[in-house]
Structure formats: structure tokens, C-alpha cells
């Protein structure tokens, strides 16, 4: 990775973390940064861009924004939803289409990616936060378990309790009663991850699974989620190098493509 070779940038302002990625002329990742999303998105984006320049990324590069805060990045030439960007990033990284599950902070998406990297269809979680990263954040906080230790705890569990509710609020009260009954924390954690994975699995099956099963988004780094999801869907899971970064990477790839085209010919993509 050489930041000086960077030719385009993508920023993914997610509900939990903000990711910035630079690509070189061949679309290879040249530089990247990940930070927790702050309430003042514009300022944060500006600061992260300045950080990229300080690291050696050339100034004046084309920038494309994605993620729920994408419209709050005035420096971006255009904005696209994270669905297209994740598909693009993962397709480039893994070199093929299939079913991509992106478990983000507040949305879970199941994306049917064509062999050309284009989104053929997608489905998202319904309105509540069930089956998203927020479910894990809230329940981990209730159990006083750091998020990054959840996977290890779940995998070390000797038993597993059944959490019947995927509703974040109801799951919290289930946890309270489980703790009161003296249930071991690892068993609860494993039950929580199972509940999340069942929810995501149902969404994936409703979309029509086509192997390979690919994962992206922050939750994808959780090894227990990878393993339970593979069990749930009966398919092995393929991961890109940096699953959390795929939205920003895809955005940077689109930015690179746009850079080489005149503004009027945006290959069917339209700015948001």
C-alpha cells in the first residue's frame, strides 16, 4: 500500500464507524483509515481527508461518499448507497458474484451480486434494529462484555441458551432474567449471536441464496458470527480482506471510474 499512488477516494460514513479508503490507478487499496463515527460528520470527514493528505495521498482526488451520512460530505463529487458500494468492493476483492451479507451498525443487507459486480437484487432488515450490529452493541453493553470479546466468549461457551427475542429491547430484558437465574455469560452471548444469525439467515433465504456466501461490514469480523452463519445457511463463508472497509473501497472504485469519464456520462449511475 502506497498512499502516494492513490488516484481516487471513497468515504463510508456508517452509523457506527467512518471509513476512508484510497485506491491507486489499478483499483488496488492504497491507503485506509477507520474511526468511530462522531456526531459532527462534516468536521470528521474533513479531518479524515486532511489525515489522508498528511499520510501522502495526493490532493484534488475524486471522492465518492456512501453510508447513511453520505450526504453530509460536501467534498464528495457524488454519493451512492452502501449497497452498490459494498457489492463493488467485495466483487473486486473476491473476483466473483454471489450472495453478500453486510451486517452493519443499523442495517443488515442481503445483496445478490451478479458476476459483473452489479447489484441484481437486495433485501434489508425491517424497521427495527433486530439482526443488526446495534443488537450486539446494546446486548454486549448490558452484559458488560467488550464487543471485540464477544466472539471469543461465544466460541468458548460450553452450552448455549435460547434467546427467543431478536427485538433489541426485549432481548435486553431476557438477558436480565437469565443473569438473575445465574446463567453463565458465554452461554448467553452464544445465544444472542444465534438469535442474530437466525434473523439474518431468514432474510438471506427470502432473497434467494446463490453461493458463494460472502460477508462484509463490521460484524463480519466476528468469528462466532461467521461460524454460526455458515451453520445456519449450510454454506461456507468467504470473507474479503477487510470486511469493514468494503463500502469505502467500493466507493473509491466508483470514484476512480467516474474520474475517467466526463461528468455527463456517469454509466447509468446517478448522484444522490
Amino acid at each position: 500500500m502506497n498512499p502516494r499512488e492513490a488516484r481516487a477516494l471513497g468515504i463510508d460514513v456508517g452509523s457506527t464507524t467512518t471509513k476512508l479508503c484510497a485506491v491507486d490507478g489499478q483499483g488496488r487499496r492504497a491507503w485506509q483509515a477507520i474511526e468511530p463515527t462522531e456526531p459532527r460528520i462534516q468536521e470528521q470527514a474533513r479531518r479524515m481527508l486532511a489525515g489522508a493528505l498528511a499520510a501522502g495521498v495526493p490532493p484534488g482526488l475524486s471522492l465518492l461518499a456512501t453510508g447513511y451520512g453520505r450526504k453530509l460530505v460536501p467534498e464528495a463529487r457524488t454519493a451512492l448507497t452502501e449497497i452498490g458500494c459494498h457489492a463493488r468492493g467485495v466483487h473486486r476483492e473476491l473476483g466473483r458474484g454471489g450472495t453478500l451479507i453486510d451486517i452493519g451498525g443499523q442495517d443488515t443487507k442481503v445483496i445478490a451480486v451478479g458476476d459483473d459486480g452489479k447489484v441484481q437484487n437486495f433485501a434489508m432488515n425491517d424497521k427495527c434494529a433486530a439482526g443488526t450490529g446495534r443488537f450486539l452493541e446494546v446486548t454486549a453493553a448490558r452484559l458488560r462484555v467488550p464487543l471485540d470479546q464477544m466472539a471469543a466468549l461465544a466460541l468458548s461457551a460450553q452450552e448455549e441458551v435460547s434467546i427467543s427475542s431478536t427485538c433489541t429491547v426485549f432481548a435486553e430484558s431476557e438477558i436480565v432474567s437469565l443473569i438473575a437465574r445465574g446463567t453463565e455469560v458465554p452461554a448467553i452471548v452464544r445465544g444472542l449471536l444465534r438469535a442474530l444469525v437466525r434473523r439474518v439467515g431468514a432474510l438471506a433465504r427470502a432473497t434467494g441464496l446463490r453461493p458463494p456466501l460472502m460477508l462484509s461490514g463490521g460484524v463480519a469480523r466476528n468469528e462466532a458470527v461467521q461460524r454460526l452463519l455458515a451453520e445456519e445457511l449450510g454454506l461456507s463463508v468467504t470473507l474479503p480482506g477487510e470486511p469493514q472497509l468494503m463500502g469505502a473501497y467500493g466507493a473509491a472504485l466508483f470514484a476512480l471510474e467516474l474520474q475517467s469519464q466526463p461528468p455527463s456520462g456517469q454509466s447509468g449511475m446517478s448522484s444522490a
Binding site: Y68, L80, T81, E82, I83, G84, D107, K118, V119, Q120, N121, F122, M124, K127, G268, M269, S270, A272
Partner: peptide
């Protein structure tokens, strides 16, 4: 009705339909 959620899903859907 959740404005932001509907808007983001619709936008992503139009990206698919218009591509």
C-alpha cells in the same frame, strides 16, 4: 413511517433499477 430508512432503501433500489 421512518423517513430515513425508506429514503435509503428507495435510493438503493433505484440504483439497481436505473443501472
Amino acid at each position: 413511517f421512518s423517513e430515513e430508512q425508506v429514503a435509503s432503501r428507495l435510493e438503493a433500489f433505484l440504483e439497481v433499477v436505473l443501472s
